[in-house]
């Protein structure tokens, strides 16, 4: 038996799952607050541009989104299998390509800020 290459995708899935577990709820809270009359300073146009325009902010946002997307993509692949979809090769290509496209889009928009 040959050893699998799945560690590449699984490692990113696990890293992404951890990042998401720590950050996704609070990020949602942040964008929910304005609806309840609390405007976080960061969400003003000038402040957010300042943050996402700085090299460190860019790197942070890019890293988080990259891992989040890979986490979601890999788990979706497994979930589709659990729902009875057996075209795993095709599913894998589709979900990972989607994650890659999202990552490229993230980089593109970050560089235009």
């Amino acid at each position: 038996m040959a050893k699998s290459n799945k560690p590449i995708v699984w490692g990113l899935f696990a890293a992404g799952g951890t990042v998401t577990a720590f950050l996704t709820p609070v990020l949602l809270l942040l964008t929910l607050l304005p609806a309840f009359g609390v405007m976080p300073g960061l969400l003003s146009y000038d402040n957010l541009r300042g943050f996402a325009g700085h090299w460190f902010g860019r790197l942070l946002v890019f890293g988080i989104l990259f891992l989040m997307l890979w986490h979601a993509a890999h788990r979706l692949r497994v979930t589709l299998h659990d729902f009875g979809v057996r075209a795993d090769g095709l599913v894998a290509v589709a979900v990972y390509l989607a994650a890659a496209a999202g990552t490229v889009a993230t980089g593109y928009f970050l560089l235009r800020i």
Binding site: M1, A2, K3, S4, K6, W10, V78, D82
Partner: peptide, 15 residues
């Protein structure tokens, strides 16, 4: 053992 358990039929089928 890794030749078996780190293969596609091994631990990677576990979700």
């Amino acid at each position: 053992r890794q030749q078996e358990i780190a293969s596609n039929e091994g631990v990677w089928e576990c979700s």
